[in-house]
Design a binder for these strands. Structure first.
Lengths: 142, 142
DNA sequence: GTTGAAAATAGGAATATTCCTATTTAGGGG
DNA sequence: CCCCTAAATAGGAATATTCCTATTTTCAAC
């Protein structure tokens, strides 16, 4: 598993121990090209670790999101998770629920100035866009 | 209830009916000066409407968030809701969990250009900042 | 390799959230 | 004011998520 190699390093650097469960969860996330729900991950992870508990999965998704190794995206029908390999943001279609990843990041010092004025130390940010995707937009207009 | 008057108009304009439950939920949100959890709202709403179901509360929080009358903010320990009287964004402290409202909005056409390039029709956006608030920042450094 | 402390896990209990459906209600039209 | 239809609700079932605790595991020091 190459993909997860550097991710595992981040985990250890953040002071978390490397367990079999974590390794499998990360590998499983890596295998999915689209953001997946906790339950979808659970079913997949159980193939390799039949005795893993739901608690362990949820706890680790929380950890991975906390150290920014994974992204948590709000979509109708439950949150979804994906490995955060490159920093980016998302667009969620309000009609079909599809999630699109956006290239680049439009958040710079300008966008954080108000927080800085208030003496807040901004370490992370997350921008969620929503509306209609190309397909749904046309259906709506047509 | 003055606060909720215009909000109720938005609800009706969006095609939703005005029910007693919705009125109470909106009034209850208006009474809270800080973002509250669904369960906190449930307990408060039940004082006026003892027989309201959890389903009705959750369904309406979803509706209110959808038509942007309420904001849904992710905080450890569950999502929180607040009336969205003026468009703004939030900062969440990773240590104490406190939520700060930020004045103004730093998202403009520039920040949406990538989405527009991809033929996505952006109707809404949400920016979440996180890090350390003034208090926790000092504790950490001290 | 062995040992010990702290962190992590499994499993089940407790909560929270969502789903389903029969019944009720809001609001427009007559 | 009465009727009608679509939308909304209550209540309970089904899921999903979190909490708790005894036991296991990681990993650093020896």
């Amino acid at each position: 598993m190459n993909v997860s190699h550097e991710i595992i390093q981040v985990l250890k650097d953040s002071g978390y121990k490397l367990t079999r469960q974590r390794r499998v969860i990360i590998d499983t996330l890596a295998k999915n090209s689209k953001p997946v729900t906790a339950q979808e991950i659970f079913l997949q992870v159980r193939k390799d670790l039949p005795s893993i508990s739901q608690d362990t999965l949820y706890r680790n998704l929380e950890v991975l999101a906390f150290i920014r190794v994974a992204n948590r995206i709000r979509v109708r029908g439950g949150d979804r998770f994906e490995l955060a390999e490159h920093h980016h943001h998302h667009f969620v279609c309000l009609k079909c629920g599809d999630v699109k990843c956006l290239k680049g990041c439009p958040i710079g010092p300008q966008q954080l100035s108000e927080a800085n004025k208030n003496n807040l130390e901004v370490l992370y940010h997350n921008l969620e866009l929503s509306g209609y995707c190309e397909k749904c937009r046309h259906r709506r207009e047509g």
